[in-house]
Amino acid sequence: MEHPLIPPGDARAARPFEVSDRKINMTALALGAVIVFAVYPAYELLRLMWGANQAPFSLTSMGVALACGAFFGWNARRRILSLARLDTSSEPREVQP
């Protein structure tokens, strides 16, 4: 391991990578919310501005946006949990302060 190409390590400064369940849940929720409250409205408004959408924010399109947002958030939480934790269980686990 002693090679100039490999940067040095500082074991004293190193600390475990810990992320609380709350942070993971809020991040996943925020990602889902971006789809529902940013991407979807921006799409509808952009189409409306160009006169291409005579019936924006229909029930059907809102339902699709909600479903996409829910899937996006759920998938993000699942993937984040699998990378941020050593165990692949998706069960919530509190990080001790």
């Binding site: 391991m1 190409l5 490999i6 390590g9 074991a11 600390r15 475990p16 990578f17 050593l86």
Partner: peptide, 20 residues
């Protein structure tokens, strides 16, 4: 490499490998 480091975050070899 990061998952290996997460198993033993104080191990100097894994820290150096992670940094590299």
């Amino acid at each position: 490499i990061f998952r290996e480091w997460m198993k033993s975050p104080g191990d100097i070899d894994r820290i150096r490998l992670r940094n590299w």
